[in-house]
Design a protein around this nucleic acid. Sequence first.
DNA 1: TATACGCTGTAACAAAAGCTACAGAATTGG
DNA 2: CCAATTCTGTAGCTTTTGTTACAGCGTATA
Lengths: 289, 289
Amino acid sequence: MKQPRIVKDLIQDQTASLTPADRQVSDVLLRDYPVAGLKSITKIADAAGVSTPTVIRLARKLGFEGFPELQDALRDEASARIKQPIRKHERWPEERGDSPRFRDFAEAVFDNLSATIDRLDPATFDKIARVLNDRRRRIFLTGGRITRSNADYFYNHLQIIRPGVTLLSQSPNVWPQYLLDMNGRAVLILFDVRRYERDLARLAQLAKDRGAVIILFTDQWGSPISKIADHVVNAMIEVPSSWDSTIAINLIIEALIAEVQSRRWDAAKDRIEALEDMFKSTRIFRKKP
Amino acid sequence: MKQPRIVKDLIQDQTASLTPADRQVSDVLLRDYPVAGLKSITKIADAAGVSTPTVIRLARKLGFEGFPELQDALRDEASARIKQPIRKHERWPEERGDSPRFRDFAEAVFDNLSATIDRLDPATFDKIARVLNDRRRRIFLTGGRITRSNADYFYNHLQIIRPGVTLLSQSPNVWPQYLLDMNGRAVLILFDVRRYERDLARLAQLAKDRGAVIILFTDQWGSPISKIADHVVNAMIEVPSSWDSTIAINLIIEALIAEVQSRRWDAAKDRIEALEDMFKSTRIFRKKP
DNA sequence: TATACGCTGTAACAAAAGCTACAGAATTGG
DNA sequence: CCAATTCTGTAGCTTTTGTTACAGCGTATA
């Protein structure tokens, strides 16, 4: 029904039938296209040196209901132009027999990923990578009910890359003993998305009190731990599901792993090779007779 | 006098001192940045699910006189971005002499996701969802060294949605006892990506012999288990890193969770509600009236 | 020169946007 | 548990915006 119209083309097409005043308006619109048209009608009329009704008349001539509709079209164009190239993946092959649910889901994930990347402060990423790269630091990780898997995944890799990495036990009642080891050299990596968990907040506070560096992975709204964390990564987690998606968190985790590993390749290499050897020599599981 | 302020940075800087409602607004603003903020205050408030005064309060917190001033800043940013399309995403390298490693990584992930979706047969997806949805079946999950976390993540959700879900212990030497329970009604979900593990293959064969349905999540090349698996999902895992990326696998997992949950909402609902009651977690988000 | 007609601005007005004050709700701290 | 504090929405208000009606102006044509 209402397909997107490119205002610039509409002006081009009608250029012949435009009156002098119309032209002054369209000049203004095209000069800083399409953003100029996103100001108020008064400002535009002013900038063009015409009256506001003239602007409305132009909008009508271009086929819009009124000025706000013209503005909507311009806003859409601005949005489309600004969207990162990375977002272009959103096009979907039509012929695929996917259920619309799957399609919507996947599209939401793409959306979340680009928004998360967009929102991530490069400096934060860099600082986190630097902290993780510091061999003198001890690293502790834990997460909430769901995000525990993310912590686990991160731990899995970190622990291979560098020494001094610990995944906290799942039960909060044994956390205090880990706290003993958390001094100014410690780093506590926490995962806390909505349905924020009190235990995690308490742990964070205690660790902070002992001087640990807190790195938090949370959602777009931010766990209460944000207030005391040294570095915060906000990931978009909403998808059309009754569950949240932690894929954006995973992206940052994997990117961090890649970053840390590449910064200290030599050191990590030895550890990995040693590990490979050990895995080869322990084969416990045997086929049963 | 009026130096241009980058709204995104202002939000980033203040992120800790923002209230939940503020965050919902900033979330909307950042999602389609900066164009989303060029709509009327009413529309924005609506989209964020908050009242208009909240939007004004956020604008003030960010240091603006009122909403129109915030909007002016956003408009300037939009204009600037459109004028220099090349410099758009390049805050990455410029910032600190950072290599565009992160960007390359992210782009590889996007490619992997699209390719994985492309390659995934909708019928396979459907069949897997159907199997998972069958309450009479018992479900067992396990993965390899790295993919164990993925199995864990899947388990976490499945176990909440439906009964009869078991995550195999990490050590292969206790696997045989699980095999006792794997009959024709059993489903074994395996994760095996390159550096394919022999133990997993053996487990798969034994389970198959006992009549279990095998669902395999593997990489683009395919674990040897592919030959005997009933359903196989191939995910693209290569990224510019010395590690592989399991994000594409996660996407399919999450999509399956969403699918299964929505197919049997009633049954799952009770379980989840019961669980919610058991967990005492902070309630941050209010339901909209 | 008269007059018809399109172009444009002025002025008045309805709609909406933006803002303020206040009170109820939620959260925090004792 | 209650008091203090913070957060947030409602209702009402002012301002601005978008719109309409109309009248003046200029030009073209008879």
